[in-house]
Design a protein around this nucleic acid. Sequence first.
DNA 1: ATGGCCTCGGTTCGAGGA
Length: 255
Amino acid sequence: MKIATWNVNSLKVRLPQVLQWLESSPVDVLCLQETKLTDDKFPVAEIEAAGYQVAFSGQKTYNGVAILSRHPMSDIVKNNPLFEDEQQRIISATIAGMRIVCAYIPNGQEVGSDKYQYKLRWLDALHQWLSAEIASHPSLALLGDYNIAPADADVHDAAAWQGQVLCSDAERAAFERLCALPMKDAFRLFPQAEKMYSWWDYRQMAFRRNRGLRIDHILLSPPLAERCVACEIDKVPRKWEQPSDHTPVVATLAP
DNA sequence: ATGGCCTCGGTTCGAGGA
């Protein structure tokens, strides 16, 4: 069983790449963020033709999330019932006995800004909601673009990013609170090469210079963490023409 | 020294991302 997450930065632009990636990496579940599509424009037929069922929650221009699954999905829930939000950032479903939560956590723009305060409030509400969700669904996975680099090892230049948005103490503390639910960062369950990132700025040839951040994560509740046998960042799609600035992260679970 | 890109909406520039 393979579950994956990918911020595609517009599914309209990236649909061919998503289909191409699924062909070479036929994961069981793929969580997408930043689809940037209203629901009436979602490419249901193309995705179903590739062998996936799909659940989605979108809006115009910004945000938007989706879950693609080779297995039946049930109990689809949009957003966090504990947090009133115009922005479409969460969708959840039960798949093969797992509760899959696909999240696009707010960016926060700049430490101290209104958007940063919204991000911290949003993360508090996420923690509160997931704490109850895990109680009713012990096998839960939170996949998505967290917009948080959990530690300095996840940052190409920790000194330059120190205290900046995505790396601030309050954001990292929120990540740690999610880990204390408890949940495990699937990527860190295994030895990994250094300087492994999931996002690189489009500017400054950041990808070629590997000036990136690891901000896309798969957190697993204990029953799933015990089944997890691998977690990999797939850098290949970031090398394609007209790529997303993020690249997929994949976790493999034993039966 | 600064900012250098991409997407969208909607018109050639601003907002937002990270």
